[in-house]
């Protein structure tokens, strides 16, 4: 459902979201912030690895492989 807030890890392949917030003191979110995944940034899940983890996400024209545990530190609002 559009607008629903959920962890980035819950988005399925092809789904998009806008970053709302994150676990600021988690090292994974710290790194993502440095890479420019800020509140307000749009992020999409490109695909999920064959074994179910990690996920490939895209933001700011860059693609990143991210474990679900790390992706869970980011809260997004679903788009579409």
């Amino acid at each position: 459902m559009s607008g629903e807030i959920c962890p980035l890890a819950d988005l399925r392949a092809g789904e998009r979201g806008r970053v709302e917030d994150g676990t600021a003191d988690h090292p994974a979110f710290q790194r993502l912030l440095a890479m420019g995944l800020l509140p307000g940034t749009e992020v999409s899940v490109v695909q999920v690895a064959p074994l179910g983890d990690p996920v490939e996400v895209e933001f700011r024209g860059m693609r990143l492989s991210l474990r679900k545990a790390d992706a869970a530190t980011v809260q997004v609002a679903r788009l579409d």
Partner: peptide, 9 residues
Amino acid sequence: RPQPFLLEM
């Protein structure tokens, strides 16, 4: 603790 594994593609 497990370290984040962020890898640019």
